[in-house]
Design a protein around this nucleic acid. Structure first.
Length: 186
DNA sequence: CGGCTTTGACCTGCGC
DNA sequence: GCGCAGGTCAAAGCCG
């Protein structure tokens, strides 16, 4: 099938993606460790441009940082008021569009679905996945666009701290090879 | 039997 | 303060 993959970049006003192709590769490949977290901290901007879910920029309520995965848990269901001690650290998020019949890109990592929500202004639900590798807190969201049902938007949050698990790695490289830089010109 | 998906409930942040 | 929308949890069920 024809599936193009448009990489969505954090189109911040200050730092245009100069060598974007290298950045794209770093999304999920094992070399991602070379990318500093500060590289993309403004996913909201591009999400806004995309109108993924709502006209608002994403509210970055995904405040989960690496450590408070436990903290975020409702402790006893009674007092989970420890958020005051938790400082919100925004993880960098990366999104890219894929024109595909299937929602899930086989990127070589193993994901476990932990939630699904209906999103406003979108007839397709958004699915939430977490990397199953122990100690790896990478999450991703998968959403199909209402206005173009063939387009799937995948948003990654965090960096994998481990190599790709499956050998289908080549598959993802193939996808990456077809990547086009998405330039939000609207 | 273990891992994964489904799904409703719960929590939080934000706008009004 | 209230309501809405997004994000997460966890129990139950399914499947290999």
């Amino acid at each position: 099938m024809d599936n193009y993959t448009g990489l969505i970049f954090p189109s911040s006003s200050s730092s245009p993606p100069s060598s974007s192709s290298t950045c794209s590769l770093s999304i999920n490949m094992s070399s991602s460790s070379t990318i500093s977290h500060g590289l993309v901290s403004e996913m909201e901007v591009l999400n806004n441009n995309l109108n993924i879910g709502s006209p608002d920029p994403i509210r970055s309520s995904l405040g989960g940082s690496e450590m408070e995965d436990e903290v975020m848990k409702r402790s006893e269901g009674s007092d989970m008021k420890k958020k005051g001690a938790v400082k919100k650290v925004k993880k960098p998020r990366y999104a890219f569009q894929t024109r595909s019949q299937v929602d899930i890109l086989d990127d070589g990592y193993r994901w476990r679905k932990y939630g699904q929500k209906a999103v406003k202004n979108n007839k397709f639900p958004r699915s939430y996945y977490r990397c199953t590798h122990q100690g790896c807190n990478v999450k991703k969201q998968v959403q199909r666009l209402t206005k173009d049902e063939g387009v799937v938007v995948t948003t990654y949050e965090g960096m994998h701290s481990h190599p790709i698990e499956k050998s289908s790695h080549d598959n993802f490289e193939h996808i990456l090879a077809q990547m086009q830089i998405y330039t939000p010109s609207f």
